[in-house]
Design a protein around this nucleic acid. Structure first.
Length: 502
RNA sequence: GGGGGCGUAGCUCAACUGGUAGAGCAACGGGCUUUUAACCCGUAGGUUCUGGGUUCGAGACCCAGCGCCCUCACCA
């Protein structure tokens, strides 16, 4: 920030910075040997110790500061929590000058004995203080206010959600509960790794920059490689590379990483997002359903301590087994139409009655209409964890035909709160069938569907060597986190969500 | 992309029908050696998102733009 846009608060802090340097005090320290976290310092005190609790050295950020003549009280916050500090001029001598130049948000390290104040709070009586980092810019804290009922309410210091996402560092610094969300995220992801590792899955890394993109229906981000002088795409899915590994004899593989889709952004879509994909040779989609049920219910239990999550009026119950609804049958029950038998015209007419604009419905055909029917009639009602199974063939170019019904594929998706959380199928392993499906996609692309999949000849070649039958599963990790935390926006579970530049 | 809402001090918000931009907290100065929403006295702090327009006069009304949120669409 330039001088002329600096606030008076910042000017005041810079004046103190200059004063500190003039006094020979370096305002940015190198390190501090702490003996204890804030929480441990508090826990180490016992009332039998009286005024002579243990000597501790703690470091952290000042989150409150109350000066009172020749004394001052402050709260220091570190990763563990908070501890109160008590400064006295007569206990600090020369360092008292530094204490008077402290501000909220400064990082300090202090030494002192722990005691309990008259008002009952366990506190460090500071005998030495070091400034570790001067804060020049006040954190946007909200004011707190006590309501009539005596409750303390903090008005979101960063009620402005834009600032929270743009300056996540400030959001995290001010909101312990936000830090907790991302701790939970880390615990969830490492639990998922452990879950798959224990079942013999090998974690692998596949290319993010790809000459061809595939494995999903989405528009890609395009970049350019200078030396090769060729376009490269940021992957929209891991799928096609992971299945090549099945050909190579890595029977169980998984990857947790970012996919990139150049599409709309909203509460449930970020341009880059975390996807977990796993593939298991000699398994089919029923095996993957069992795996999904075990994985998600285990994760919910691990992260939330229960299988029943209260979300508004609803209680989401993750206790297995979860209901399984046939795509075609489910849509038929809600709409009266069998999407495998109905004509496009019938589906258009049915959709028109639900509020889908007619002129828009006119542009849909085939698989797109079937999908619209599903979204209009079945998806919104899928609040409890539910598997939707056996998707029409037109919707699933990478899935194996259903062994009992040629119109369908062996595919399922998991829905919770009306949102897709996971997608899986018995993987197509017939190279000739796969080639025909790619050719279909090419025709759709020629007809203007820019999300149709590209023909991947190398993938076909791999399959021609013989790909074992396999079950594959993709899980949207961010959306899973939304369910675990109950947070309403994908931005709330991504540290640095995509934003327009300021 | 369509529709709706919002944008005022560092933060949270006021400002009637168009009539001198305010408060609390934070900041700064003074006082106070066990406070914790500290307290008391005082001071300072504004491109009312940006650019046009209407008007004697615009934070408010009109137009355009920017940003964010909600919603619909797109996005399996």
């Amino acid at each position: 920030m330039t001088d002329d846009t600096r606030s008076f608060v910042e000017e005041a802090r810079r004046a103190k910075l200059d004063e500190l340097r003039a006094a020979g005090i370096e305002p940015y320290g190198y390190a501090f040997k702490r003996t204890s976290t804030a929480a441990a310092a508090v826990a180490a005190y016992d009332d039998a110790m009286g005024e002579d609790g243990p000597e501790v050295a703690v470091a952290g950020r000042l989150v409150s500061y109350r000066r009172q003549g020749k004394t001052a009280f402050a709260h220091l916050e570190d990763v563990s929590g908070r501890v109160q500090l008590y400064f006295r001029q007569d206990a600090l001598d020369a360092a008292w000058g530094l204490v008077q130049l402290l501000d909220l948000d400064d990082h300090v390290g202090v030494h002192g004995r722990v005691f309990r104040t008259r008002t009952g709070e366990v506190t460090v009586r500071v005998t030495a203080v070091e400034l570790l980092a001067k804060s020049l810019r006040p954190l946007p804290r909200g004011k707190t206010q006590v309501t009539e009922s005596g409750e303390t309410v903090t008005f979101g210091g960063l009620a402005d959600s834009e600032v929270r996402y743009r300056q996540r560092y400030a959001d995290l610094a001010v909101h312990a509960e936000v830090r907790e969300v991302f701790r939970l995220r880390a615990r969830a992801v490492s639990w998922l790794r452990k879950f798959l590792d224990e079942r013999g899955f090998l974690e692998v890394e596949t290319p993010i920059l790809q000459p061809l993109y595939g494995g999903a229906a989405a528009r890609p981000f395009v970049t350019h490689h200078n030396t090769l002088d060729m376009p490269l795409f940021l992957r929209i899915a891991d799928e096609l590379y992971l299945k090549r590994l099945l050909v190579g004899g890595l029977e169980r593989v998984y990857e947790i990483g970012h996919d990139f889709r150049n599409e709309g952004m909203d509460r449930t879509h970020n341009p880059e997002f975390t996807m977990l994909e796993c593939y298991q040779a000699y398994a089919d989609y029923r095996d993957m359903m069992d795996l999904t049920e075990a994985m998600v219910s285990g994760l919910v239990e691990h992260c939330c301590g229960t299988l029943r999550l209260e979300r508004g009026d609803a209680v989401l119950d993750f206790t297995p087994p979860w209901p399984r609804v046939s795509f075609v049958e489910g849509v038929r029950l809600q709409s009266g139409l069998d999407v495998c038998e109905a004509t496009d015209a019938e589906m258009r007419a049915r959709l028109a009655r639900t509020g889908v604009p007619r002129e828009e419905a006119e542009t849909f055909s085939g698989g797109k209409l079937q999908d619209e029917m599903f979204k209009a009639f079945l998806e919104p009602g899928l609040i409890q964890p539910t598997f939707v199974v056996d998707y029409p063939k037109a919707l699933s170019p990478l899935a194996k035909p259903h062994r009992a019904d040629a119109r369908l594929t062996e595919r399922f998706e998991l829905f919770v709160q009306g949102r897709e959380l996971a997608n899986a199928f018995s993987e197509l392993n017939d190279p000739d069938d796969q080639r025909r499906r790619f050719e279909d996609q090419a025709r759709q692309r020629a007809e203007g569907d820019d999300e149709a999949q590209q023909h991947d000849a190398d993938y076909i070649r791999a399959m021609e060597y013989g790909m074992p039958p396999a079950g594959g599963l993709g899980v949207g990790v961010d959306r899973l986190l939304m369910v675990l935390t109950g947070l309403p926006s994908i931005r709330d579970v991504i540290l640095f969500p995509a934003m327009r530049p300021e």
